[in-house]
Amino acid sequence: MLVWSRSGRLVLWALFALVFGVLFLAPLAVILLSSLAGQWNGVLPSSLTTAHYGDVLHGSAGDAVKASLVTGFLASALALVSGTWAALSLRLQGHALRRLLGLLFFIPSAVPSVSVGLGLLVAFSNPPLLLNGTVAIVMVAHFVLISAFTFGNVSAGLARLSPDFEQVASSLGARPGYRLWHVTLPLLAPYLVAAFGLSFALSMGELGATVMVYPPGWVTLPVSIFSLTDRGDVFAGAALTMILVVATLALLLGLERVAARASGS
């Protein structure tokens, strides 16, 4: 809805600033301030320091960043491949089956992630499927939680793709594999990149399931943050959170550029 009057627009902007400022920026600002706080007893910190960053960087921050990035990358890549595959093959199915399977894909995102973690823990605790205590089970947990989003994104992209492109390609003699590689996937590229970015961001922030399944030596950023704050080390937790935010932002911005190039604009 367009608002034309000047005062109307001012009110809208003020509302937007309020909602955005209070709900998004205030928590971030508080975290940023805590990560830099030497002492914080009053309304604002009484002194500022970068010591917390030094501490976490000397501690296990590096490992946590690595664990998070590797988990995020692998789980997202896996989710991208399987989500795309599922979306492409479901397109060929009848409408009813497509709806049903599409819904099934989304069940893990409706279940609390802690329960997903618990489920995996129980399911994979006996041979031959013994994954407990391995890095793989972390990947699996993340994969289960994010694949619905890649599937959803790619399906949305496919639904918007005019069948004309693929049909013209076929009529020109392109076999299905050639057509997929040279027509369908390039046309889907913006959706694939968006799907990957979204899964990566989700994976970077995943805590509930990870806490249930992570093995020693593979502590992701959210898990480290959780244990730091749990121990009462709030300022260090805040510093680590800022590192997580920056890493995720950098990644998303990078992907955005890739997407821009892929869609040729």
């Binding site: 390609a169 076929s170 009529s171 020109l172 003699g173 057509r179 040729g264």
Partner: peptide, 27 residues
């Protein structure tokens, strides 16, 4: 379709947007 040896032109052209003109024609 890919074994029928036909040429097809549709209403909205459906040129492949990510390919240059010559690559479209070469497709």
């Amino acid at each position: 379709p890919y074994e029928r040896g036909l040429g097809m032109v549709v209403q909205n052209y459906a040129l492949f947007p990510h390919m240059r003109v010559e690559d479209n024609v070469a497709f």
